[in-house]
Every structure is written in C-alpha cells, then in structure tokens.
C-alpha cells in the first residue's frame, strides 16, 4: 500500500530581496523591509514529503536514516547558516522563499533515489509558508 511520509527540518539563513532588473525605487516598493541592503534572516522549516509502497519487510516507505542523511548533506549543509545571496544557487535569481522552495525540490527530486518526492513545503516564519509539487502541477 502506498503511504506518504513527511519529515521536517530546521535551518537558519539570511537573505536580501533585491532584483538587479529593478530600479532602487522599484526594489523598495516591491520588497519593502526585505530590501534592506544588509539583509535579514529566518529560521526556516522545510517539510519534505515522499511517497511509495510500504515495504513488506521493513514497514517503511523509505529508510528515514537515508532521507535524513541526504537532506543533511544536500540541503542543510548547503543552506544552514549561510547568506543565501552569496551562494552560487542564487547568483541569478532572487532568494525569495518561493525560489528557495523550488531549489530544494529540484535537489531532492534529482538526487534522492529511495522514494518519490511529492512536495516540498517551506515555512519562512510561523505566518508564511510555501509549497512546490513540481513543474506539472
């Protein structure tokens, strides 16, 4: 039988929302406080949902240790306690939480072989969260 497994991880990072394609005025108007030149930070919670058949032998969709190891190496090590604007991943796009959510989805979708990725949900604060389920939906 098919089940969905979700796991939540915490990381902290800073960012500044600023687009090279906009004027100073437009940046201020679009991003408000988030355009502050020195940046600011968040405690992000990323929730990864994978699905698959529950293995008869183990009772699991996938081994949690495999998922934890992958997320720690590929997501947390990359983004935790970083300034997102300085990362190569955001050299060409604004590190909004939408874009970060999509990037995390792509990393897990490409690299995690043990289960099907259903959804990445990213909470920027307790008030804001974003979900991405891939290109087609």
């Amino acid at each position: 039988m098919k089940a969905h497994l979700s796991r939540r991880y915490l990381f902290s990072a800073s960012h500044r929302l600023h687009s090279e394609e906009m004027s100073t005025e437009e940046n201020k108007r679009t991003y408000g406080k988030c355009n502050n030149p020195y940046g600011h930070g968040h405690n992000y919670i990323v929730e990864i949902t994978v699905s698959g058949q529950v293995d008869e032998q183990t009772g699991m969709v996938c081994n949690l240790a495999d998922l934890d190891t992958f997320i720690e190496r590929e997501v947390l090590a990359r983004f935790d306690h970083e300034n997102l604007n300085t990362l190569q991943e955001f050299s060409k796009e604004v590190p909004t939480t939408e874009n970060l959510c999509i990037q995390i989805y792509e990393i897990v979708h490409r690299g995690f072989p043990h289960a099907h990725l259903e959804r990445v949900r990213l909470e920027e604060t307790m008030m804001n969260s974003f979900e991405y389920t891939g290109k087609s939906s």
Binding site: M1, K2, A3, H4, L5, S6, R7, R8, Y9, T49, V61, L64
Partner: peptide, 12 residues
C-alpha cells in the same frame, strides 16, 4: 513526533 508524520489515503 512533531517532525515526522505519515499520511495514508487508502491507496493500494
């Protein structure tokens, strides 16, 4: 735990 949950929709 608050960090780990499973959803089942009755799918085969």
């Amino acid at each position: 735990t608050p960090d780990l949950f499973v959803d089942f929709y009755g799918e085969p």
